[in-house]
Design a protein around this nucleic acid. Structure first.
Length: 197
DNA sequence: ATCAGGATTGGCT
DNA sequence: GCCAATCCTGATT
């Protein structure tokens, strides 16, 4: 089943861990594709590394809306990254989804990425958006009612992500310069589908 | 109006 | 390991 609004209306770090093993599904142009979430990061209130740190702007305004909405942004003029807006209205917290294990629509993901290796299809924040066809027009849509959704792994008992349920590893976040020491990155220890750098 | 820099990736040394 | 690609946003002049 699709994760309900109540799932997101909880502590951000808790939800960041609970999202591991859940299925990110996108019903987009060209078809549907999905992957298990195996790596993600939390960006909190008062966090210098968070896009919301300097207050609300045109770009980050969905972060300050209700939890459970999609926040997308363009990085390095090349790649789209996808987040879940978190915290009560006005808080501006977020969860960055960093890596997926391909699960459904793998052929479509391969076509979009222009490569075959399942280990490389969605093992990074820019890779996974390309593989699922996630673009900036999804910014602000609801994960509970929109074309991009997150499903509970318990509702799909026939297939399981590698290493789930299992040990969750917590480390520092990747690719940031501010607040680089905060341990807010989480991933499934036994998964081979984690981002490299 | 201008400009520095970024929650990345892929290719080359 | 190093570096270019590529462009939008936010801060500054």
């Amino acid at each position: 089943m699709i994760l309900p609004p109540e799932f997101y209306a909880r502590d951000t770090v808790t939800v960041t861990q609970d999202l591991l093993g859940c299925l990110l599904v996108h019903q987009g142009k060209g078809g549907t594709a999905a992957g298990w979430i195996v790596e993600d990061e939390a960006y909190l209130k008062g966090d210098p590394a968070a896009h919301s740190y300097r207050g609300e702007t045109k770009r980050n305004r969905v972060l300050f809306g209700p939890p459970g909405r999609v926040y997308t942004y363009l990085i390095y003029g090349l790649h789209t990254c996808v987040n879940v807006a978190m915290g009560p209205v006005g808080t501006g917290e977020a969860i960055l989804i960093r890596a997926l294990e391909p699960a459904f629509g793998v052929d479509l993901m391969q076509k979009r990425r222009g490569m075959d290796d399942p280990l490389e299809l969605a093992s990074g924040p820019g890779k996974l958006t390309e593989a699922l066809g996630i673009t900036m027009d999804l910014n602000g849509t609801s994960l509970c009612t929109g074309p991009l959704q997150i499903w509970s792994p318990d509702s799909l008992p026939d297939r399981r992500p590698e290493g789930w349920p299992g040990e969750i590893v917590q480390t520092t976040r990747i690719g940031i310069t501010k607040a680089a020491d905060r341990p807010l990155r989480f991933y499934l220890k036994e998964s081979r589908y984690i981002s490299r750098r």
